[in-house]
């Protein structure tokens, strides 16, 4: 059993890591967190289902189109919920309320369009494989493999490409980056798109394993945030480690202690790390300039 729990934990942990990375991208460029992140995850899934069912598009096209729309929704979020409050007062945390509001709107629109019933989502692969004493669904392994590829791609993008370095530059000092000719507006847009895509892909990966419905995102916001904060907000390695820790702990607690406690793990990690080490495992403590 332990092996199965670990595989499940690592796979789910990878998903939390993706959502956590999404938190990081907007935190770098705008110093904000999108409290509607989980709703972006849900949107990509339900939009794919909508395009497949109602427009009769084949799945691959439906999924690509859904991701494109989700990315566009990310841009809309910046324009509607984030830019106005930051323009009004750059120090304010009002974006907590506005992005949450945007998420509630998305959720309720989804209820209007799709109702509250649960939809099936096709698996990438059918069947199971025998790993030592555990029978593991192939789908699970596929999800894990895709997550690893995505994390590697994300790392290459941020650290090796010019655009990724521009994101880092804006994160470090927006004014200085602009003085170097970096289009910070564009970088902000890019970070919103990345956030939406990371959440959306995470949603598409888990959709076959859970059921797709308008409320599927809410818990993911919390768990992705726990992962990001546990690892240290702003640290990609942190988000991955944080995601894995939360994912594995969840499966172990759910498997050996009580399945009802599974969803409490994210909250408990969040609570403990904020008391013990608010900058997270891999975060750096920043001194405020006065």
């Amino acid at each position: 059993m332990l092996l199965l729990f670990l595989i499940l934990g690592i796979t789910w942990g990878g998903i939390y890591a993706l959502v956590g990375l999404g938190f990081n991208t907007t935190f770098w460029t705008l110093r904000i967190l999108n409290f509607a992140q989980g709703e972006y995850l849900m949107a990509a899934v339900l939009l794919s289902i909508g395009f497949n069912r109602w427009v009769n598009l084949p799945w691959p096209i439906a999924i690509v189109l859904a991701l494109a729309v989700t990315a566009a929704l990310g841009l809309v979020l910046e324009r509607v919920a984030i830019r106005p409050v930051l323009q009004h007062d750059p120090r304010s945390h009002s974006w907590v309320v506005t992005t949450l509001g945007a998420g509630i709107v998305l959720q309720n629109l989804a209820v209007l369009l799709f109702g509250t019933s649960e939809y099936p989502f096709p698996k990438l692969m059918e069947g199971v494989v025998q790993l030592l004493d555990a029978r593991v669904e192939k789908q699970l392994l596929a999800v894990f493999a895709i997550t690893v590829v995505l994390v590697v791609l994300f790392d290459i993008f941020v650290n090796r490409t010019l655009m990724g370095k521009a994101i880092k530059a804006v994160a470090f000092d927006r004014m200085a980056a602009e003085a170097q000719g970096i289009n910070s507006r564009g970088i902000v847009m890019l970070s919103m798109i990345l956030m939406a895509l990371l959440a959306g892909i995470a949603g598409l990966l888990i959709a076959p394993m859970v059921s797709a419905h308008p409320y599927m995102g809410t818990l993911m916001t919390v768990k992705g945030f726990s992962a990001a904060v546990l690892g240290g907000l702003g640290s990609p390695v942190g988000a991955i480690v944080g995601g894995l820790v939360v994912g594995i702990a969840e499966q172990l607690v759910g498997g050996y202690i009580n399945p009802g406690l599974k969803d409490a793990i994210g909250l408990i990690f969040l609570f403990v790390i904020l008391i013990a080490r608010p900058q997270g495992l891999f975060g750096k403590k920043v001194a405020e300039r006065v």
Binding site: F35, H93, T221, S226, L270, L274, I275
Partner: peptide, 17 residues
């Protein structure tokens, strides 16, 4: 130790739980 959006997320999580 912290405030602001951390409390917002803690309270969401607590609500769900």
């Amino acid at each position: 130790r912290v405030s602001g959006f951390y409390l917002a997320m803690l309270t969401i999580a607590f609500d769900l739980l």
